[in-house]
Design a protein around this nucleic acid. Structure first.
Lengths: 210, 210
DNA sequence: TTTTTAAGATAACAATGTTAAGTAAATAAA
DNA sequence: TTTATTTACTTAACATTGTTATCTTAAAAA
């Protein structure tokens, strides 16, 4: 059938343009942040008119969110790899450090995913579902705490894996958030991210250990 | 001297207008966030032309930063009050909870102060100096840990009050950050901010305690 | 060969921050 | 008292943004 071959080539071409858009936007976003990604700059980069972008993405937000989602998925691999550790508490340390590491490395992605109010797009979040790296990482954390509880590694008063996961997440997240946004403020004698992250994670683990 | 009286009245009038601007902007900012504060909306609110605002503030950023600074100073009182507690570790608990509480109550202020990249305005930060609530609160935290170390309340390996302060700050900050930006995400079984904050703080304290 | 469809471009709109130029009243100087 | 100047403020405009309505043109289908 000629039909298929033609429409397939068309689809390939479409995807090529779409990916060029994503690549141009990714570069701008990673190096200069959300506001620096203007439709016109992206368009110029790929040598199409700005309106072409709208044939592939509903609006600017959808474009940046999609590229962010894709990047996060691959970045999330680092955490999944760090989770290759049998001992639950040690696994917490490794995954926590991986979370911090990529937060520091990709601050703009981190800001978009975790530092902008997204409650108005709950539908979108729901659609993303289990492919969502954020959710997957949370699940990883949750399972680790369930295991730690089952193996009686924690003090007996800590019985809620969700609460534990959220506490642990908050701690590691805070290290990233503060260092992304405030590190360098001359009024504070800063300690390094690694040091801070390590102590935060260790303190939290010691704090709930049996 | 007539001169003085006249220029004093002028200065009073100037201040009145300036405060009207700040009040209008404050309302918009607190309820709808940074982007919702447009120069034209503020101008309409106070019944002046948009350009009048520029007679009082260098630009939009300066306006919002000034109102935020003022608000934070007064809000910071809550933390100073919470610090009225002789026992250092208990003081950590109280001030930490106060930090979380106002972060939840004024998410937009919190975002502006702690979640936007401000490294490009280091000069401004330096000028703000010790009136800076962020620094003052940090100092409070630092002193508390110095006291805790001096009273030998912490395990002997924890000797750096700066590192301890930054760890503790990161933990409480993380609770706020996550709850401001992600709370409500349907894929996570959320625990309440109070619960999470309390456990985070307690875990960190237990984690460094002797 | 004609018709339809799809990709893409041009031009424009509205909203934004910001500035240059003008106005008019209050004040100072003559 | 009259003239000059300073001050507070406005009008109009500019540049940049996201976005859309309309047009063009080439490919595909009829």
């Amino acid at each position: 059938m000629v039909f298929m071959s033609i429409s397939e080539r068309r689809e390939r071409d479409r995807l090529k343009v779409r990916n060029k858009i994503l690549d141009a936007a990714r570069w701008l976003f990673a190096s200069e942040g959300y506001d620096a990604v203007t439709m016109r700059r992206v368009a110029e980069e790929i040598e199409y008119s700005p309106t072409t972008i709208y044939l592939h993405f509903k609006d600017k937000d959808a474009l940046i969110r999609e590229l962010c989602r894709l990047d996060m998925m691959s970045l999330m691999q680092a955490i999944q790899n760090a989770a290759d550790e049998p001992e639950p508490l040690e696994r917490l340390r490794k995954t926590g450090m991986a979370y911090v590491k990529f937060g520091i490395e990709y601050p703009n992605h981190f800001r978009l995913m975790f530092m902008s109010n997204r409650l108005h797009e709950v539908e979108q979040l729901a659609e993303m579902g289990h492919g969502n790296p954020e959710t997957d990482a949370y699940l990883l954390l949750l399972n680790t705490f369930e295991e730690a509880i089952a193996k009686q590694l924690l003090a007996p008063e800590f019985t809620d894996p969700h609460l534990l996961a959220q506490v642990f997440w908050a701690g590691t997240h805070g290290v990233v958030a503060i260092h992304i946004n405030l590190y360098g403020d001359p009024w504070i004698e800063w300690r390094s991210v690694e040091e801070t992250a390590k102590m935060t994670i260790n303190a939290m683990i010691r704090g709930v250990q049996r």
